[in-house]
């Protein structure tokens, strides 16, 4: 038991510290909550107006679209903005190289910090988000058992996203300017990840592509569940992507570390 506790301590301690720092940053939280509610209200207004015309869009009612919009935005806004840029910059300036000298796993400690921060932020966003969505669209569809699916889906979505952003940021080991990588990543999440629109709205070909990519695990899955579609199998899909993401991150950072050792950063 103690061995297990010792084993996860390296993860829990930095995560807990990051979470406390996030809570302490009041003005940062105010900006994040404001931006999240602003975008969610705007997008849900658009979808409600769209559904109002014909009753529903791609099988979603106006109310379920509202919940979709608030949930999808929360999953994305729950992550510190421009993470890829930040990590890329830190790799470029040697901060990460310095961290590699520490005994703990570089990727692990970083992930712990960012996850601690992001999951805290997500939790903070979900409170006013739920309240506002409830006011606009009434109680969440399938309230009750769905919560058991939605909350883990949110946690998985943020975790996969954070890990994949690290993978994208690791391009900094090889490229000087990774803004392109970040830019592309962001847009893929917006459209193919289901942040701006439910994947059911996409044309068939695009939808097939989207369902084969990890981005759908980052916004679409929790949003789809929150919109009242009972689909536990989506959690299995997320779990699969989590495994892939972790494997990719470990591989890419190991390669990057080798490169730093060879070239001196």
């Amino acid at each position: 038991m103690n061995a297990v506790a010792g084993g996860v301590r390296w993860f829990l301690v930095p995560a807990g510290m990051a979470a406390r720092r996030m809570i302490a940053d009041r003005s940062g939280l105010v900006v994040a909550v404001f931006f999240y509610l602003l975008v969610s209200v705007t997008l849900s207004s658009l979808w409600r107006a769209a559904a109002g015309h014909q009753g529903s869009v791609a099988g979603y009612s106006a109310d379920s679209l509202t919940w979709y919009a608030f949930a999808a935005e929360a999953a994305i806004c729950g992550i510190a903005v421009r993470l890829v840029d930040e990590i890329g910059e830190e790799i470029a300036t040697g901060v990460v190289t310095a961290e590699m000298l520490r005994p703990a796993s570089v990727v692990g400690v970083r992930l712990a910090t960012v996850l601690g921060r992001s999951l805290t932020l997500l939790g903070v966003l979900l409170v006013p988000g739920t309240a506002l969505a409830w006011t606009i669209a009434g109680p969440p569809p399938g309230l009750g058992p769905m919560v058991a699916l939605v909350l883990p889906a949110f946690a998985l979505a943020v975790t996969i996203n954070v890990i994949m952003q690290h993978v994208a940021a690791a391009a900094s080991f090889w490229l000087r300017d990774i803004r392109a990588a970040w830019f592309l990543y962001q847009k893929l999440v917006f459209v193919l990840g289901g942040m701006l629109l439910p994947l059911e709205v996409l044309p068939d070909s695009l939808r097939t592509v989207a369902s084969c990519l990890p981005f759908m695990a980052m916004a679409y899955v929790p949003a789809r569940l929150a919109a009242g579609h009972p689909a536990p199998e989506l959690l299995v899909v997320q779990a699969g992507w989590l495994v892939v993401a972790v494997a990719l991150a470990v591989a890419v950072f190991a390669a990057g570390q080798r490169r730093v050792e060879v070239t001196g950063g």
Binding site: A49, A50, H53, Q54, V57, V191, L197, V201, L202
Partner: peptide
């Protein structure tokens, strides 16, 4: 994409 599903909004 939006307007493939929705003819018009208000």
């Amino acid at each position: 994409i939006f307007f493939t599903r929705v003819p018009s909004v208000r």
